[in-house]
Nucleic acid binder design. Sequence first.
DNA 1: CAATAATCCGAGTAAATACTCAGCTTCTCA
DNA 2: TGAGAAGCTGAGTATTTACTCGGATTATTG
Lengths: 206, 206
Amino acid sequence: MRGKSTTPRKLPTQTRSRQTVATILEAAAQVLMRNGYDRTTTNLVAEKAGVSIGSLYEYFPNKEALVAALASAHIDELIARIDNALQISEEETPSSFVGALIRAGLDAHRVNPALHKVLVEQVPRIGGLAESLDIQTVLQQKIEHGLHERSPHLPPTRARMIALVLETCIEALTHRAIVEKPDWLETGEIEAEAQLLLEPYFQGAL
Amino acid sequence: MRGKSTTPRKLPTQTRSRQTVATILEAAAQVLMRNGYDRTTTNLVAEKAGVSIGSLYEYFPNKEALVAALASAHIDELIARIDNALQISEEETPSSFVGALIRAGLDAHRVNPALHKVLVEQVPRIGGLAESLDIQTVLQQKIEHGLHERSPHLPPTRARMIALVLETCIEALTHRAIVEKPDWLETGEIEAEAQLLLEPYFQGAL
DNA sequence: CAATAATCCGAGTAAATACTCAGCTTCTCA
DNA sequence: TGAGAAGCTGAGTATTTACTCGGATTATTG
């Protein structure tokens, strides 16, 4: 057994305890963002949340479960955003398709970037979370699916490769922009540059 | 003072001690790759190296210094490889320039990938190492420099953006390929796909 | 061949921290 | 309304682990 169980020890049934759990999660996010995973101690989280350490362990069997719960909620929100961004523009021009993908990637990165950073950079070693935190794969599969709808004649191997390239570059450029020049997200500079890069590739690949 | 000092406590002067240091570093790399940073204990490294824990602390003031020494050596090798790959092909066609960049990125990733992974994913939080481990910036600056030589008329802002895009995508695609399908590095599939993506962008951007 | 320096040893220390548990308080519902 | 359930408490435990230090062993040097 490599990773510990992350299933809750007890389910909060009363309103009071549900509030406690919410408070703990909120505090955990704060501490995690401020200190990183290693320097996040369960005692500190409890203190920050204004509950006793015992209460924390009433609902989370261990530290990993706490982070896992946080990550799970974050992922749900991310995927919702991506779905939203992809569905809004259902027009059929390649240009708008690429544009929608880029916007989806950018949107996803606007959901609590600080927490995202910690989760991505430090949490992957937590068993079981690595895969589910992997937005990459989720987005890639959506792209692959979209490709197949638009061009059924495309060989599956080819579709997978194109999806991988599109997803990888969008993700990487967005992430890089955030780290290097957060302004670029607002000015749309990155969006434009990504379009410049990916549209010709996409057109040529079809 | 955020990070601890990583300067050696004592320099090994005799041959015996230099051998000891080498053995310790080798063992550290092994343990780091197998266990990750957190599960790497100094005692375990010493044991694996066949020296006492006291000897380890004779030359490395703390755990971070040990990892820092390892990272430093790794970085030197990486940069040497990149320089090499870039200098070999000094021909002037845009196609070969892009090809050389891609090959440089791929080559860099062939230097002890397992160690690289650990260092990149888990070590950045070690103060001072984050920047120097940042191959990104090194490669980007080399690209920027190359661009300026080839096209002096190009506005500096534009050159920086192009370099950023090229570097980011090469790095990301290579990294992704390693994780997803290590074979692609050998078959040249990734190399070809990257060329397909980046050459039109590069030509259009000039 | 001393005497001094360099190297090595490893049991032991100190500190950090994940997690427990016995008992108290608050809530629910028959 | 009272008995049992749910929730809360926090001092204390157990474990892990980075790091020390007094002393033994080996190398150098005058």
